[in-house]
């Protein structure tokens, strides 16, 4: 295969990954890593390097539109990101003491169950409840654009969401995967945010979380420019396209897309823990 053919294929894959990442709040790594590893037999470290680049590109590309349109809740994003970085530091300390394939297996099963809950949960039925006292103190409740104009929402379960984010950070520090899925779940299940606020705020945060690991991958030479340049170009265009589509897609349809993608991530994890790719 010539380099030109490979680059063109990767550009198309990255475009789809960016679009899916923008809509689900998961970043584009979910698609990039398995395509590089399973289809092109690229070493997992290079694939994760390209995946981190795709996550940062999705996060940056979507942030412009989501911030302007008013979906992203910056305060919730920063608050939960603090939990994620505390978790990442704990995860890094725990690395020598834990068996990563068992954790990946448990995490994979938890994700499948969470995907089921996300798929089953009905639309924003409890957004009119009063907010958690911590949410009020931190001024987390806000509003977001709907087809009927701006709509206010409350914020529940702040300590629970912070706990999930700490676990998400630790897992991403331990395994380098899956934090996007837990970010959306923390905001959707624990905080009971409107679904689009959860996915867009996750999109804002994942770039910051990916940058924590990307520095290390850069310095070890795993972020390769030949693999990364079609990824950046495709993902940026895909993410901007996805961000334009978001206001026109019904939240329930987004939940179904998210659940499907999370199931794929979970199956990848279970496969990884059993086979060790």
């Amino acid at each position: 295969m010539t380099i030109l053919t490979f680059i063109l294929i990767l550009c198309v894959v990255a475009f789809l990954a960016g679009m899916l990442g923008a809509l689900t709040g998961l970043g584009g790594g979910v698609v990039i890593t398995p395509v590089l590893v399973l289809l092109f037999h690229v070493d997992i470290h290079y694939a994760i390097g390209a995946s981190l680049i795709s996550v940062m590109a999705t996060s940056t590309g979507t942030a412009i539109a989501y911030l302007r349109e008013g979906y992203t809740n910056l305060r919730i994003g920063m608050f939960l990101e603090a939990g994620a970085v505390i978790g990442a530091l704990i995860g890094a300390l725990l690395v020598p003491f834990l068996n990563s394939s068992v954790i990946i297996l448990i995490f994979g099963i938890v994700l499948i169950y969470s995907a089921y809950l996300t798929w089953r949960r009905k639309q924003e039925e409890d957004s009119l409840h009063s907010s958690h006292p911590w949410a009020v103190a931190l001024q987390l409740p806000s509003d977001y654009p709907t087809l009927d104009g701006l709509k206010s929402y409350s914020v529940q379960g702040v300590p629970k969401a912070f706990g999930i984010m700490t676990i998400a950070g630790a897992l991403s520090g331990l395994l380098g995967i899956g934090s996007g899925a837990l970010k959306v779940l923390a905001m959707d299940h624990a905080m009971r945010l409107p679904y689009k606020v959860a996915t867009t705020t996750s999109n804002f945060m994942i770039g910051i979380t990916a940058a924590v690991s990307a520095g290390l991958y850069f310095s070890r030479g795993y972020i390769d420019p030949l693999l990364s340049f079609p990824v950046v170009l495709g993902v940026l265009v895909g993410a901007i396209t996805g961000a334009k589509m978001l206001p026109h897609i019904h939240s329930q349809r987004l939940r179904i897309i998210f659940s499907g993608v999370v199931c794929i991530v979970a199956l990848q994890m279970i496969y990884k823990s059993l086979v060790g790719f």
């Binding site: 030109l4 490979f6 070493d43 850069f218 030479g221 972020i223 390769d224 340049f229």
Partner: peptide, 27 residues
Amino acid sequence: GGIFFLVSYGHDPVPWHKYTSYPTIPT
């Protein structure tokens, strides 16, 4: 950078061997 690279090396085969081993030059 990508276009300049493709103009010079676009028709070369992909150096797969590079991506199946550890990198030799740390960045």
